[in-house]
C-alpha cells in the first residue's frame, strides 16, 4: 500500500514542481497522439462513411475486416512499421526510424480502423433513418456522405476520442519504432515502462496518474466543445 501513497506523492511533486523533463515527455505524448488521431480522423471519417453508404462487391468482408482491425495488436503494428522504416527496409532511405514521425505513422495505422469502423456504424444508422427523405430530395449516397457526417458530428466525436484513447495508451508500437530515446522519442507510456524496469514502481505509477489526468483533461475538453457546439448549432 505504501507504493500507492508514494505514487500520488510522486505525481504531485512532478506536476507541482513543473519538472521540465516531465513537461517535455507530456508535450511529445500529446504531439504524437493528437497528430496521429488528427490524421486518422482525416482518413477514417470519409472511408467509414463511404463504406456505410456505397454498395460494392466485398463490402461485407470489408466491414468485418474494419471491425477486426480495431483490435490490431500495437506490438505487431510496431514490428511492421519497423520493418518498413528500417534502413534495410523499403523506406529506409527516409531515415524515419526512431523519430516521432515513425511513432505517428504507427499510431495512425492503429487508430484509423477504430475511427473508420465506428464512423461506418454511425453513418449507416443515420442513412437507414434518412434514406427515403434524402432520395426524395434527390440526394444519392455521394451527396449524403458529407451531409450525414455533418449530421452525426457529435456522435463521431466519441469515435475520435476512442481513437485518442488507443493512441495515448499504447506502448507496444511506439516503443519499437521510437526506441524510447531520452529527449527525442520518450513519451508517457514508454517512460512508465522504463521506470517499471528500473524497479521504481512509485515513480512509474506517478507517471501513470499524470497520464490518466491528461487523458481526462482531453476528454473533458472534447465534452465541453461538444456541449457548447450542440447548444449553439444543435
Amino acid at each position: 500500500m505504501t507504493d500507492f501513497g508514494a505514487a500520488f506523492a510522486a505525481a504531485f511533486a512532478m506536476v507541482a514542481g513543473f519538472d521540465p523533463d516531465l513537461a517535455e515527455i507530456v508535450g511529445l505524448s500529446l504531439q504524437v497522439s493528437l497528430l496521429a488521431v488528427g490524421l486518422a480522423t482525416v482518413i477514417g471519417l470519409p472511408v467509414g462513411a463511404a463504406v456505410a453508404l456505397f454498395r460494392f462487391p466485398g463490402r461485407t468482408a470489408l466491414v468485418v475486416a474494419l471491425n477486426a482491425l480495431m483490435g490490431l495488436p500495437p506490438v505487431v503494428v510496431g514490428l511492421i512499421v519497423y520493418l518498413l522504416l528500417s534502413r534495410a527496409g523499403p523506406f529506409g532511405v527516409l531515415g524515419l526510424l526512431f523519430t516521432p514521425t515513425a511513432m505517428i505513422i504507427a499510431q495512425v495505422l492503429l487508430v484509423t480502423p477504430i475511427i473508420a469502423a465506428l464512423t461506418r456504424q454511425v453513418v449507416e444508422d443515420l442513412w437507414v433513418e434518412y434514406e427515403d427523405q434524402m432520395r426524395s430530395l434527390g440526394a444519392g449516397p455521394a451527396r449524403a456522405l458529407t451531409a450525414l457526417l455533418w449530421d452525426g458530428r457529435f456522435t463521431l466525436i466519441t469515435a475520435v476520442l476512442a481513437g485518442f484513447g488507443r493512441a495515448s495508451a499504447e506502448v507496444g508500437a511506439v516503443m519499437i519504432v521510437g526506441g524510447n530515446i531520452d529527449h527525442v522519442t520518450r513519451v508517457m507510456t514508454t517512460a512508465i515502462a522504463l521506470e517499471v524496469s528500473k524497479g521504481d514502481l512509485a515513480l512509474a505509477l506517478g507517471l501513470g496518474i499524470v497520464l490518466m489526468t491528461l487523458s481526462l483533461a482531453v476528454n473533458a475538453a472534447a465534452f465541453l466543445v461538444k456541449e457548447t457546439a450542440q447548444r449553439h448549432y444543435g
Binding site: 497528430l35 482525416v42 523519430t99 505517428i104 458529407t146 457526417l149 455533418w150 449530421d151
Partner: peptide
C-alpha cells in the same frame, strides 16, 4: 448544413502539414 464540411479538405491539409513541420523540426 454543408458549409463547415466544405472546409474538410483544408483542415485535412493543415493537419498533414502540421504533422510534417512538427516532426521535421529536429531533423
Amino acid at each position: 448544413m454543408h458549409r463547415s464540411l466544405s472546409r474538410f479538405p483544408a483542415v485535412a491539409l493543415m493537419i498533414v502539414v502540421l504533422a510534417l513541420v512538427v516532426t521535421q523540426a529536429r531533423a
